[in-house]
Design a protein around this nucleic acid. Structure first.
Lengths: 303, 303
DNA sequence: CGATCTTACGGGATTCGTAAACATA
DNA sequence: TATGTTTACGAATCCCGTAAGATCG
């Protein structure tokens, strides 16, 4: 009647079924033989049928016992597999990790980190979102994402932030552009040239809008585009200049283009690995953040 | 560290994972909420990682918890399936049965019983051996066979025997054979005609040899063949007569042949369902033996 | 008589439920 | 403050190991 059979009882049953001896199975299982007897009896009671025919010198499986053995052997395999898998997961040997990054980070830093991470953790399955920073934080809050690589400004305390590197703003222009003569430029230098911006309200966009408005009250971009690739292409044809983050240029096609760092205030932002403070981190998170730090230290464009 | 997780703990974990509430899960599982808390804690300890993030107003799965849930859901299905299957097996709804029969029974009675049994127990899987009675008993002893349908003579006490029907010896001959004029024959009537026998040392063969030797000291068959079909064919062509059991003729081609019952002593044998006395019978055995009795009662050729 | 399983029994660990404490929205 | 989880603790239960009993070769 009762449906409570224990893993241990099944293990013990299989030991007896294998050895066809209570005493040997007890020794093998490191329990006393009477205790084993009782366990088998309990199991038989819960099943409602004898599993073994025991005579003084001979133990043999009944028909029900044989059937039960046939069913339990794959079951034990499954249980052991679950055990093994969860151990590997807990010990951060394999697992799943959901990563988000804001657009500019997704364009340069994040892919490099993921590639680097997978060389040392080939069994890990990474799901990646490239979304605006606000969306990343929302995904974090909802628990859809384990860690976000985003610019950090005014994060609430519930978010745990580990700084990775400073991402400088640069102005991108054709190689023969007048500004290319200067070693550094500042926000004021930019106001004379038509701007091309990415349409989405990214943190970069907001910063540029704010700073440009300060030096040119009725600032408006000449063009708005959806993708960074389009933006660079338009700059290359001489339609204007644009502000991007230094870290995102590593993966871009920069032929006939050059860039200059912007000097002054609000000319960089701190990029961090952000996770939820009050949630237990996935075991892989530590090693992933370490990979982020390793990449940010070892790669010149993130320094 | 410890690798002991209980079925119950997994059930409780899944309940909490489903409801995301300790109190609801406790109520659903009919245990107190603190007890549930403790079980989850034990499970977490044995896994070595937190499964839930609990805050006062909010319970959510950790990454490890999600992974564990993904692994446990199919595991629970498997466990429930084992439960269901073993229940069906114990309650004789489905299962396996290994049947053996001696050659003459395998030729007529056994197939009819099996066919009849499968109409009422379509889920049962029957394995069938047709072997000499001695071999059948050997298979019984070795536990390879659950029940044997064999002639019973001098069985030891370890064998449990349930009588089914009397199988009479008959002499088979061409329709125009001189003996066909008689309503009954006796062993002495047979000595004047050439005998054809089946080669194997079946119980039938042994009986015939014994009885014929009594009436004809240097009795020897004119021909020995391997199969009953061959024997009948040779009788049909007039090469001799042969003794078979009545029950085995039902399935045979008897064109141009007729048979007469042998009168006197040692002219029949008792056919029984034989199983091991000291072994727990498979749950299906009872119903199978009942099917044997039903067939032997309802079919005229077994009366 | 020896090997092997079962029963009996006492002690220790486990587990449960009630009640109180604790933590957040 | 109200809701929901954890801690504390006493009692009941479970489970194991030792020792004795039973059974068959």
């Amino acid at each position: 009647m009762s449906s409570n059979a224990t893993f241990k009882q099944i293990e013990l049953f299989l030991a007896v079924a294998q050895t066809l001896s209570f005493s040997k199975a007890a020794e093998m299982s490191h329990i006393s033989q009477p205790a084993l007897s009782m366990n088998i009896r309990k199991l038989e009671d819960s099943i409602g049928a004898k599993l073994f025919d025991r005579h003084t010198r001979n133990v043999s499986l009944t028909a029900v016992g044989r059937e039960f053995q046939d069913m339990c052997l794959p079951l034990r395999d499954k249980i052991q597999q679950v055990h093994l898998n969860i151990r590997e997961f807990v010990h951060a040997k394999k697992g799943k990790l959901v990563v988000a990054a804001s657009p500019s980070i997704a364009a340069g830093f994040a892919p490099q980190v993921i590639a680097h991470y997978l060389t040392s953790h080939p069994e890990v399955e990474i799901k990646f979102y490239d979304e605006l920073a606000d969306v990343c934080i929302d995904l974090l809050r909802k628990g859809k994402v384990d860690v976000a690589l985003i610019p950090t400004e005014g994060l609430t305390q519930e978010l745990n932030q580990i700084d990775l590197f400073f991402d400088y703003f640069v102005v991108v222009m054709p190689e023969d552009h007048p500004l290319a003569c200067k070693a550094e430029v500042n926000w004021g230098d930019l106001r004379e040239y038509p701007h091309i911006q990415i349409r989405s309200p990214s943190t970069l966009r907001k910063t540029v809008d704010g700073q440009m408005s300060a030096v040119l009250p009725d600032f408006r971009p000449a063009y708005e585009v959806g993708l960074a690739v389009t933006l660079l292409s338009m700059i290359r044809t001489g339609l204007g200049i644009g502000v991007l983050s230094h870290s995102s240029l590593g993966q871009a096609n920069m032929t006939n283009l050059t860039f200059r760092r912007i000097a002054g205030h609000s000319t960089y932002r701190s990029i961090s690995a952000v996770s939820m403070n009050d949630r237990t981190p996935p075991p892989l998170l530590d090693s992933f953040v370490q990979a982020c730090q390793a990449v940010s230290r070892s790669t010149s464009e993130f320094q």
